[in-house]
Every structure is written in structure tokens, then in C-alpha cells.
Nucleic acid binder design. Structure first.
Lengths: 252, 252
DNA sequence: TAGTGGTCTAGACCACGTT
DNA sequence: ACGTGGTCTAGACCACTAT
């Protein structure tokens, strides 16, 4: 036996749609447990695999989440607001405050996995920074963990000749961070360009950000320019899309 | 029989990882056909469902795409660059050009599904526009189709008392669009705020944007403010994330 | 121990597209 | 007619969680 009745949706999509509607109507709230495979199998009189397929739909839509041995639950969201303009104003990093402090507010933000190194520029990085391919580049890897959950991976690239010997090549860049140091080196960032993309995560990103199925990532590539219009930093960030809302203020 | 060998990845993940690596190494380029279910079943000596599961992984990652009766293929991307700042400068809409023309460049952009109406404000819309809940709001629905593929859904909300009787309530808003008309009505937009989110699409969005599995959407909520700081428009946009890269320029 | 989700099998029929 | 992916079944064993 197989197939759905003519002109109708497949069974698993019908079951998924029914659950989706129940969630959207508020019948199941954030964090609530949904009917499991076995229950769906009986209430809808389908095979286990079909019930599983229905739940897979909701998981891949990011509205449900399964925990092994426990059940399937409605996902809850509580995104952080990331202000793209204010965070880069000179008042923030010029005052010695971290560029990241603004995001956290009342929440617990930890930075781990810091790795600083020097490596030859890859082709795309060299192009953005205006270097010859293979030129030495200082790279700074970091991971941001919010309330125990990793939310952002960051890799910063800077021309090595620009920052050699400065605190930028240390784990702790000092008050005001990289941008304050660049300013001291005569390359104060005055203009930034952010490119935002979104896609499904790679396997590595899923692991590092502990993402569940159905969660996209946002990719922000930020270039910092000094007063001469030279690109002095390229920062590639990978964000858990469920954890962030990006805000940009624009003057006409 | 069941289970994978101790300490190893499940079979379907191993197969998926192998294909993923082959794609990333360039062995399969954009548009190339991948080995199908039956081929994977034989080369890896697994059940059909297991081979399917492996392909599902790649599809949900957005790097492969299946076409019924044909096969599974590596997805190709060609995103449009959407300049968030330049597009909102007065020079663009003040000159009578469409705010959208800049995106398209050499490509074929069509707007369809235009629907203009008036309805009571929902709670979130009323809050953003500073209206009482239930106050009349003019809504403008549009869909943008690029090279035959729908890429953006837009719903614009404006206080009805502000635009009543103006071309804003018509399908064709005239040269310079809604913002030029708002300016003529004494509510020239001088400041904008865009909020960017990303998530997996709803079933309705998947249908309207003709999205394939593994494609997230980006959600842009833009509020336009006039010189008095009053919110005069809320534009909710839903973008095919595979079709767009958002660019924002920021002055320190 | 019982219940949950996770993986896996070996079949089946259907719809679609090509030959 | 044949190959492709799409849906579906009726079992099975495993791993994790709770009681």
C-alpha cells in the first residue's frame, strides 16, 4: 500500500500542517511538549516512519525541537538585538568599552576559544584588504557564548604589517579593543561596510554553535576603512539566526 | 539489524559527509547531477531509505536540490546585492527612480501580485506606527520576481489618515513611489530603521517564493520616520535568502 | 523497566520526465 | 518502458531519560 488520496496532501504533510496550526493558534506554547511519534502513529493510524516524517518537517522549519529520550517540543526564541550602527560609533569603542557589551545587557556573555595567529591571506581576504595573495595576515578567532549557548563565531583578518608588535596580535587587545589600537596606529576606522547573508549551517558550524535542525545562520562580513579609504580589517561573523535580530539605522 | 558501528557516525551521515566533501572539493560543480538514491544504495550497500536520508541532509543544508523524475543536483547561487543605505538616500527616490531599480542592474525584475487595501491595524503594527490598536491602516502587498524566480514579498503599512485620497492608496504610486508621495504630504521620510532576522520559511512563504528545501528567508522590517520622528511607514519584507546579500554602509 | 527519539531494513506503489 | 525521486508500510534494534 502507498499513496495519498487523489488531489490531497501527503499524509505526513497533513499531520505536520495540523501540528503547525495548533502551534500557531497557541494550543501549544513555547517549550510545550508535542505529541510524539508513537502517539501520532496511533491517532493518525500511520506507520512510525510517516509520523517521524511529519515531525521532521516541523524540526526543519525550526518550530519544533526533539530531545532524545524526552520528546518533541515547541522551540522558544529570545533573540538579542544587535545594533549595527551604534555599536560602531566612535563613542563606544573610543571610551574603552567593549563593542559587544551593548548586546548583552542583562544576559551572561562569555568569550571563549580565542585564537590569534598569522597566516598567508586567502584570495578573497587579500582582495578585500587590498593585499597581494599570500601576504601575511593576522587572524583573530573568537566565540561568543550567551547564557551558556554559543551564538556567534568571529574571525577577524588584519594586514600583518599594520599590526605587527601591537596588542592586536595578543589575546587581550586592551581597552576599546582592536579598533582603539588601530586608531593609535594611525589607522582609525571611520567607515564600515557590512554584508549580510543567510544560509543553512555547515556541519562544522552546527557543531560549534550547537545548532538544532531548522536553524539557519546569518553571515556578516564587515570591512573597516580608515580615513584614507584603506581596508584595515575584515571581520567574518557567523551568527545563530535564532539568537539575533540585526538593527540598522539609516539617515536619508 | 540496525545501528552503526560503535563510536562512528550513522551511515546516512557518513554518506552525506562524503558527498558534501566531494562538492566542496569541486568534484561536483554548481548544477551537476549527484549520484541518486539507487546508485548510493548500491555503492554503499544500504537500504533505499538510508540513501534517501543522506540526500535529505544535503537538501536541508541547501547545497543540493532534487527534481522529481530527473535526479539530485548541486545548487547554484547568484545573489543580488541590496544596498541598504544608498537605496534609501533621497537622491534615489527624490529623482523619480524606483527604489528597486538599483538592485536589478542587468537582470529582469517584475513586480506582480500588487494588492492595495485598508484594514484595522494588528497589535504589533499599531505599536510600531504609534496608532491605537484597530486604527485604519493602508496596506500594500507586492511580490518581486527576478529572472522568473520570485525573490521578495513585501507588505507596506501606512496610517490611513495620513495617505487617504493620495496615490499611495492606488496600485501605481507614481514617480518616486510611496516615499515621494509622503514627502508631498508633508511627511518626508528622513530616517529609517531596518531590523533583519532569518528563519526557515512558513509553508505559505515556501509556496509564494517557490523555495526549495534548505533555503531560509531573511525578514526585513523597515520603519520610516519623518522629520518629527513620527513613524510613517512599516514595510515587512520576506526575502529568499539564497537570492540576496544585504549591504549596509556605516559611518563611525 | 518503560517510554522516548534515532537508525536501519526490505520491500511496495505512485508521479514525473526522458527515451 | 524505464529511471528518477516521493510516499508509505511493518517490522527491528539502539541510546537516552525518567521512574
Amino acid at each position: 500500500m502507498a499513496k495519498q488520496g487523489a488531489g490531497e496532501l501527503p499524509k505526513y504533510q497533513r499531520i505536520a500542517a495540523e501540528l503547525r496550526a495548533a502551534i500557531e493558534s497557541g494550543q501549544y506554547g513555547p517549550g510545550d511538549q508535542l505529541p510524539g511519534e508513537n502517539q501520532l502513529k496511533e491517532t493518525h493510524q500511520v506507520a512510525l516512519m510517516t509520523a517521524r516524517q511529519a515531525l521532521d518537517v516541523l524540526k526543519n522549519e525550526g518550530i519544533a525541537e526533539s530531545r532524545k529520550g524526552k520528546g518533541v517540543f515547541v522551540r522558544a526564541f529570545r533573540p538579542v538585538r544587535r545594533r549595527g550602527v551604534q555599536r560602531l560609533s566612535q563613542e563606544v569603542w573610543g571610551s574603552g568599552r567593549s563593542v559587544w557589551a551593548d548586546d548583552a545587557a542583562d544576559r551572561d556573555l562569555v568569550v571563549d576559544g580565542i585564537e590569534v595567529g598569522e597566516a598567508p591571506a586567502t584570495e578573497p581576504v587579500a582582495r578585500v584588504l587590498g593585499l597581494e595573495p599570500g601576504a601575511a595576515v593576522c587572524t583573530r578567532h573568537r566565540r561568543f557564548v550567551l547564557d551558556g549557548k554559543p551564538v556567534l563565531l568571529s574571525v577577524s583578518h588584519l594586514p600583518a604589517e599594520l599590526v605587527a608588535g601591537s596588542p592586536v596580535t595578543q589575546e587581550d587587545t586592551g581597552p576599546g579593543g582592536t579598533y582603539a589600537r588601530l586608531a593609535e596606529l594611525g589607522h582609525k576606522p571611520v567607515r564600515f561596510r557590512e554584508e549580510v547573508r543567510s544560509r543553512m549551517p555547515s556541519a562544522a558550524e552546527t557543531r560549534q554553535l550547537e545548532l538544532s535542525a531548522g536553524t539557519p545562520v546569518m553571515r556578516i562580513c564587515r570591512t573597516a576603512f580608515d580615513g584614507d579609504g584603506r581596508a584595515v580589517e575584515l571581520n567574518e561573523m557567523t551568527l545563530d539566526a535564532a539568537a539575533y535580530v540585526l538593527e540598522y539605522d539609516i539617515e536619508a
